[in-house]
């Protein structure tokens, strides 16, 4: 029997720093909820809005797989490995922080906010050499499919990380349903609704709701209206 956990959008932690508004599905920085620490290897899911011309000053990271998915606008990234890059909607950025890196991120557009998901996964190996990558996602509109954007394999679709995790983006038309097959036993699936309404294993989900499912081989996902969502398959034990 599958087990589930529901995180409604309006129960997330909220941090409002003026230049940054962050909606946090799991405990992060000043938001601490002992019942919301992680979902398997998924530790951070922040839904961030950065005001135009503002951003995160230089700060460190270590031993974490950090994935950024811009939803609107763009972010300029600089890091201690010498990478200088801009990421925008339709792209994905990944950093393996390993033994330690410093980076900064800011919104170069003075007039429009940048909206992005900041996702952290526990690595399956500590103290790796830090690495950075970003790719442009396939812009072909592929409705009613799961489009893989991340995996543990360098030669597979999307970016890769040091964890047995698979991420997919999807846009389903109203009424479309499809089963997501897990890659491995012991994995769980965390569904984050970007826009629209879904029904997952009988649970209705709305925009920015999160829903975790585990102890199952596959997960049934049905769009109530047109819906965009992110699927994050992660090991529950790591």
């Amino acid at each position: 029997m599958a087990q589930t956990v529901l995180h409604k959008a309006n129960t997330r932690g909220v941090a409002d720093h003026g230049w940054l508004k962050s909606y946090q599905s799991f405990s992060f920085a000043g938001y601490y909820n002992p019942e919301r620490i992680h979902f398997g290897a998924l530790r951070v899911l922040n839904d961030d809005i950065v005001t135009g011309g503002m951003g995160f000053g230089e700060h460190p990271h270590d031993n974490m797989e950090i994935i950024s998915i811009p939803l609107e606008g763009e972010l300029q990234h600089k890091d201690s490995m010498g990478n200088v890059a801009t990421i925008k909607a339709g792209e994905i950025q990944v950093m393996s922080a390993g033994t330690g890196i410093y980076h900064s991120e800011y919104n170069p557009d003075a007039t429009h906010p940048a909206k992005f998901l900041q996702i952290w996964l526990f690595p399956n190996t500590r103290n790796v050499t830090p690495r950075y990558d970003q790719i442009v996602l396939d812009k072909t509109e592929r409705k009613n499919e799961f489009v893989q954007i991340l995996s543990p394999n360098a030669d597979d679709a999307g970016v890769w990380i040091y964890q047995n995790a698979w991420f997919n983006l999807a846009t389903f038309e109203a009424g479309h349903s499809k089963a997501y097959p897990m890659h491995g036993k012991g994995n769980g699936l965390y569904i984050f609704v970007l826009e629209g309404e879904l029904e997952v294993e009988g649970q209705k989900l709305e925009t920015r709701d999160g829903f975790g499912v585990w102890d199952t081989d596959s997960v049934n996902i049905k769009a109530i209206g047109e819906a965009k969502f992110l699927l994050m398959e992660v090991p529950m034990e790591f």
Binding site: F28, A29, Y32, I37, D62, M64, G100
Partner: peptide, 17 residues
């Protein structure tokens, strides 16, 4: 306990736990 993240993001939850 193992610390992850290298900054403020997870530190306080790790300490409380």
């Amino acid at each position: 306990i193992k610390h992850y993240g290298g900054g403020s993001g997870l530190l306080f939850a790790e300490i409380h736990q």
